[in-house]
């Protein structure tokens, strides 16, 4: 009796073992794994800039970004308040720029800015190159982008030899900025960047520094799918003696620029509503010449509108 049952079971077992088939889960294991080995992290930041500071992002190939930046006057403090309509009567700086992607890694830009200090009528040419891109598997943990710009001041030269605009040669009007932007997307909601910067101004006010190193910090935190808080902050490393002299002579103090903004992305457009103590928009000015303080009410609101255009020809993909 027992052996018969055993034999029947054996028969059943043997029949099944010859007729092996796959369950859904087993079948899924047979799927080819086509995931690229080191997939690149996309969209560490939404735009090429946070508020004033550059991000690691560049413009994609054959795409053009048109960007308008505007900074108003002080909201509060001596130059703000209701008389100046909280700064809206003034424009401390305005910048209109175009950036174009020569390749997915390399972009170039041209811009015109008003300029916030005596150094005005600025023309900027820049180049930005993605050296390394972060990968999802952390094979490359941080993205590295290089930025370089030359800003030319077209303002009429001053007769005062101590002034920042006492230009004698054309080359005096040149200002160079180079930055190494290190960025990491920690998760889909948070990205952080570190920006060692070097400024060289061919001509400055008496005892101002021609060469200036600075360290920038930037961050972006999403608050909803299409809105994010962006922050950037720069610490310029000044020579203390020169700083004290300039502050005494000009009766101003230097502050570190701190910018906070709300970023709204609508697909094609990126809008920023910013609050910043920096009057200027150009790197060579807001890093070196920020003389207004958040604590004195000398912050302003500003906005940025960026629009992308694609020139990729209709091609069969």
């Amino acid at each position: 009796m027992r052996t018969r049952l055993f034999k029947k079971l054996l028969l059943l077992l043997l029949i099944f073992s010859t007729l092996h088939s796959f369950g859904q889960e087993e079948l899924e294991k047979e799927l080819a794994d086509n995931k690229p080995v080191h997939e690149k992290v996309a969209a560490t930041f939404k735009d090429i800039k946070l508020v004033n500071g550059h991000t690691n992002e560049t413009i994609h190939q054959n795409e053009l970004e048109f960007k308008v930046d505007h900074r108003f006057g002080d909201i509060a403090g001596g130059n703000g308040g209701i008389r100046q309509f909280f700064g809206l009567d003034h424009a401390t700086d305005v910048r209109i720029g175009f950036e174009y992607g020569l390749s997915d890694r390399l972009s170039i830009g041209l811009a015109r800015a008003k300029g916030a200090t005596d150094v005005q009528q600025l023309y900027e040419g820049n180049i930005k190159y993605r050296l390394l891109e972060q990968t999802t598997d952390d094979y490359i943990p941080v993205a590295v982008t290089l930025f370089g710009s030359n800003t030319i001041a077209a303002v009429r030269a001053s007769d005062d030899p101590a002034a920042a605009t006492a230009y004698r040669r054309f080359s005096d009007r040149m200002n160079y900025v180079s930055q190494v932007i290190l960025a990491r997307k920690f998760n889909s909601n948070f990205s952080f960047s570190l920006t060692p910067s070097y400024l060289h101004r061919n001509f400055t006010a008496f005892r101002d520094q021609n060469d200036l190193f600075a360290l920038g910090f930037g961050g972006r935190a999403k608050i909803s799918k299409r809105m994010a808080i962006v922050v950037d902050y720069f610490i310029p490393f000044r020579n203390q003696a020169d700083k004290a002299y300039l502050e005494q002579v000009n009766g101003v103090k230097f502050y570190n620029p701190l910018d906070v903004g709300l970023e709204i992305e609508t697909g094609g457009h990126v809008f920023h509503l910013n609050f910043t103590n920096a009057q200027a928009i150009e790197e060579m000015q807001y890093i070196s010449q920020t003389t207004s303080s958040w604590l004195k009410g000398q912050y302003r609101w500003g906005f940025t509108i960026a629009r992308r255009f694609s020139f990729n020809k209709k091609q069969k993909i």
Binding site: S21, F22, A42, H60, Q61, E63, R308, S310, I317
Partner: peptide, 26 residues
């Protein structure tokens, strides 16, 4: 990638969302 078990006619079709390519990178 996709697989079919001819015996049970079970089928699985799977695609990585990041593998989609667009004419406009944005």
């Amino acid at each position: 990638s996709s697989v079919i078990d001819p015996k049970t006619r079970n089928i699985i079709f799977k695609v990585s969302n990041t593998s989609f390519q667009f004419q406009k990178k944005l």
